[in-house]
C-alpha cells in the first residue's frame, strides 16, 4: 500500500506548480490549455449572437475560464491569457484575497496534521478513551453520518430500480422500440390482410378491374 501513497504524495507536491498564484509571482500555465476555443475570434461570437438566448448575461457567473473571454471581448485585448495575468498583478485587493485564502487553508491543514499526529503517534489510547466517552458520536462518525446509507435509500436504489424497471424495460423496450417494431408489424399485418384480396378467382379479378374502371369513368362523369 505504501507505493501508491508515495506516488500520490509526490503528485500532490508537484501538481501545484502547474498554476502558481499571481500573488506569489507565478503564472497559470494551464490557462491556455484550450486556447483555440477562446482566442479573439471566439470573442465576437456572443456579440453576433445577441439575439441568441441569455448567453451574454450568463457569462459573468461562469467558471474562471470564461472570464478572460469576456474581458477580451470587452477590451479587445490581443490575447485573453496575458490580459488576465496582467490584471492579477496590478490589483492589490485580489492579491490580498489570494493570500488570505492560502493562509487559512494552510493553517487548517497544519491543524489537521497535528491532530492526527497526536492521536495516532503520541497518545493512541486517548483516541480509544474518547471513543468510549462519546459512544453515540463515535458511532455516528464511524458510519460517516450515515450519509452512504441515506444516499443508498434516497438516490441509488430508486435510480437503479427506476432505470431498470421503468426506463429500460417499459419506456425503452416497450414504448420507443415498441413503436419502431410496431411500424414493421403494421406493415406486415396489412400485407397479410391485403393479400387475401388476391383470391385466384378470375371473377374477383374482373370485378376489381370493373370497379376501377367505374371509379375512373365515374370521376369524369360526375364532374
Amino acid at each position: 500500500m505504501a507505493l501508491p501513497l508515495v506516488l500520490l504524495a509526490v503528485g500532490s507536491v508537484v501538481a501545484g506548480y502547474v498554476g502558481v498564484p499571481h500573488a506569489l509571482g507565478g503564472s497559470n500555465s494551464i490557462e491556455t490549455f484550450l486556447h483555440p476555443s477562446f482566442h479573439p475570434a471566439a470573442a465576437h461570437a456572443p456579440a453576433v449572437a445577441g439575439d441568441h438566448g441569455p448567453a451574454a448575461a450568463s457569462e459573468h457567473g461562469g467558471p474562471p475560464e470564461t472570464a478572460p473571454a469576456t474581458t477580451a471581448a470587452q477590451h479587445d485585448a490581443p490575447a485573453a491569457g496575458d490580459h488576465a495575468a496582467a490584471g492579477g498583478h496590478d490589483d492589490p485587493d485580489k492579491a490580498r484575497v489570494e493570500l488570505t485564502l492560502m493562509g487559512v487553508s494552510t493553517v487548517l491543514a497544519l491543524l489537521g496534521i497535528g491532530l492526527a499526529a497526536f492521536f495516532f503517534l503520541q497518545r493512541p489510547e486517548a483516541a480509544d478513551a474518547a471513543a468510549r466517552h462519546f459512544a453515540p458520536v463515535h458511532r455516528l462518525l464511524l458510519h460517516k453520518y450515515y450519509v452512504d446509507e441515506a444516499y443508498d435509500a434516497a438516490l441509488v436504489h430508486p435510480l437503479r430500480d427506476g432505470s431498470n424497471r421503468v426506463l429500460w424495460k417499459v419506456v425503452d423496450a416497450g414504448l420507443i422500440d415498441g413503436a419502431v417494431n410496431g411500424t414493421g408489424h403494421l406493415v406486415r399485418e396489412s400485407a397479410g390482410a391485403l393479400r387475401l384480396l388476391q383470391t385466384g378467382s378470375v371473377r374477383v379479378y374482373a370485378a376489381s378491374l370493373s370497379v376501377g374502371a367505374l371509379l375512373v369513368l365515374g370521376y369524369y362523369l360526375a364532374r
Binding site: G53, P54, S58, E59, G62
Partner: peptide
C-alpha cells in the same frame, strides 16, 4: 465535454 458544456451554458444554462 468541458467545451460542449461551456458552449451550452452560454446558450441555455
Amino acid at each position: 465535454e468541458f467545451l460542449t458544456l461551456m458552449g451550452a451554458y452560454r446558450w441555455r444554462p
